[in-house]
């Protein structure tokens, strides 16, 4: 019987990208000649459990999880997406008296999704106001539209957005909100990682990703994922990003 590998995607995908990942899976199987089952976990916890149980073979991972995947689970990063970023925007209601980060007060109600990298970077941007997870009230919601809603309804004082999600909000919604700071980190991004069972095919997968725009239907698949393409990452690039994430996670 032929082996079926598991492909999974960082649970911060937006609803409009789900079909894109199914199309990607089909394209990948055809061009690689291997069988994949795409598993879309609906939370980071569920996905981490699967990783711990060695169920995952190929993962489009959140940078927050790259450390565990590489250093504990023996994954290897092969490519990162071009044209999307992991930057975070800190936002307040348009009428808020808060003009700069330093004006945000202890016990502020902070709305975010469960995206771990955005939560981390967002909290770092609140540090100049002497804020940390221990002196804000965290409100975790199910998507960036709900982060916006919490701000509009006065249920949150501050919201963290993935930059792309913020840019994607409708104009009428954005007009009622005001960005305070946008991170400009650029060294942190999602990565595509290959697990131990699939390691033999790591080079093939990498070269396939890099050539994707030139291969039949590849361009269309990229568009449905919202990527311009993939860029190569080597081991040292990955280690560097992990070191950087580790400094940010350390308390």
């Amino acid at each position: 019987m032929e082996t079926t590998f598991q492909l999974t995607v960082s649970p911060d995908f937006t609803p409009e990208r789900i079909s894109g990942w199914y199309i990607y899976n089909t394209w990948l199987q055809r061009n690689l000649g291997l069988h994949f089952h795409l598993e879309m976990y609906d939370s980071f916890d569920a996905q981490r459990t699967a990783i711990c149980q060695d169920e995952v073979d190929l993962i489009y991972a959140n940078p927050f999880d790259a450390s565990m995947l590489v250093r504990e689970k023996g994954f290897r990063a092969v490519a990162y997406p071009v044209g999307v970023t992991d930057e975070c925007v800190v936002v307040v209601p348009a009428g808020s008296s808060v003009q700069k980060i330093e004006d945000v007060q202890p016990n502020a109600r902070v709305a975010s999704t469960d995206d771990p990298d955005i939560q981390l970077v967002g909290m770092i941007m609140l540090e100049p106001a002497d804020l940390s997870t221990s002196n804000v009230q965290s409100i975790v919601v199910d998507g960036y539209v709900l982060v916006a809603k919490a701000l509009l309804k006065g249920e949150a004082d501050v919201g963290f957005f993935l930059k792309d999600a913020w840019d994607g909000l409708s104009n009428p919604v954005r007009k009622q909100l005001r960005p305070l700071v946008t991170s400009q980190i650029s060294d942190i991004h999602h990565v595509l990682l290959v697990g131990p069972r699939l390691m033999e095919s790591a080079e093939d997968i990498q070269s396939l990703m890099l050539r994707m725009p030139e291969i039949e239907k590849g361009q269309g698949v990229l568009e449905s994922l919202g990527f311009e393409g993939w860029a190569e990452v080597d081991q040292e690039d990955t280690e560097f990003m992990i070191d950087l994430m580790d400094t940010l996670k350390a308390r």
Binding site: E102, I124, M125, P128, D130, F240, L244, T247
Partner: peptide, 12 residues
């Protein structure tokens, strides 16, 4: 070694 710096608060 890697050093990553971020913005400190005025209190600190």
């Amino acid at each position: 070694y890697t050093s990553v710096r971020r913005k400190p608060s005025r209190t600190k």
